[in-house]
């Protein structure tokens, strides 16, 4: 049966009073995900905006146990938490590590690939704002080509690394991409991941208006444009079976890219090559 917003739990396990910027996409991702995960969840978060946003030692927005780990180790800490729960015979708890794109694809990658290889009973979430935002918006492997960042004023010159494909290659239980503009799709994916006996990976595109240089009220809008243009495909891989969850309407990629301040250096040729890449991926005529 299809999910409806009215049936979701009313409890606010994350988000109220959070210390993030107004209009933060990562905070939206956290709120939507917790509607699926529920109160029997233990969360580890490495250094990132999401960790900062959760509060300090004195105050927190989390209503569940939340542990702020060192940058490189969130999935390893979560593996340990799962082992400790198992030893105590506690079975009804979701163990989650939740990291930014740097905590997932770059600095945190070693612990992530290890936990995935061991097929630990846990979920790793990457909320992808395509930059190192908590330290001022530096370039990382998830920054798209051409995007201007605080340490690459002319724009990135190499392509974004495909983390979803890398995680799929681990042969884990569940891999999915999700977007904060499609909350019911996102929530359904978290529910699926929570049911798996092994490792799941969910990659959420969560725009950061500061880094992307867009108006703060347009955070959700740009998350949607990324999907509708075909640049961020919403799909899942379950038992080796790949399913596309949302068919894009294929708005021109230009409509997604050029309004963003970080793509101010985009040339018409670059836009054309990005559009050609999308067309190739979906097998559409060029």
């Amino acid at each position: 049966m299809a999910l409806s917003i009215a049936d979701l739990p009313k409890e606010e396990l994350f988000g109220q009073g959070n210390a993030g910027c107004g209009g933060c996409g990562a905070a939206v991702a956290g709120r939507q995900a917790m509607k699926a995960l529920g109160s029997r969840t233990i969360m580890t978060i490495p250094a990132s905006c999401m960790a900062t946003m959760g509060g300090s030692n004195l105050k927190t927005t989390w209503q569940i146990p939340f542990y702020h780990t060192l940058f490189e180790i969130a999935p390893a800490v979560s593996s340990g938490i799962r082992a400790a729960l198992e030893v105590q015979g506690i079975e009804d708890v979701n163990v989650v590590s939740w990291a930014g794109d740097a905590g997932t694809a770059d600095i945190g990658f070693q612990a992530l690939t290890g936990a995935a290889e061991r097929n630990e009973h846990m979920l790793h979430v990457c909320y992808d704002n395509e930059m190192y935002m908590n330290t001022g918006g530096q370039t990382g492997s998830q920054t798209p080509m051409y995007a201007v960042t605080s340490n690459m004023s002319k724009g990135k010159t190499i392509k974004k690394k495909n983390m979803l494909a890398i995680m799929e290659a681990h042969g884990i239980d569940y891999v999915a991409s999700a977007s904060i503009a499609y909350p019911l799709d996102l929530i359904a994916k978290f529910k699926k991941a929570a049911e798996k006996p092994g490792f799941s990976y969910i990659h959420i595109l969560a725009p950061c208006h500061r880094g992307w240089q867009i108006p703060q009220e347009k955070t959700i809008e740009f998350a949607r444009l990324a999907v509708e243009s075909g640049l961020f495909e919403l799909y899942e891989v379950e038992d080796g079976l790949r399913t596309r969850n949302v068919e894009p309407s294929f708005i021109p990629v230009e409509d997604y890219l050029t309004p963003q301040g970080r793509f101010k250096n985009l040339t018409p040729e670059a836009i054309q090559s990005i559009q050609a890449g999308v067309n190739r991926h979906y097998g559409r005529g060029e």
């Binding site: 210390a19 509060g55 209503q63 146990p65």
Partner: peptide
């Protein structure tokens, strides 16, 4: 038997609600 989660919180759950950080920016 379902045991309680073995976690000792340092901050009271949800306590940021009482002093939300962002409202002075509104």
């Amino acid at each position: 038997m379902v045991k309680n989660l073995p976690v000792v919180p340092t901050a009271k759950a949800g306590s940021l609600v009482e002093t939300p950080t962002g409202i002075t920016w509104r």
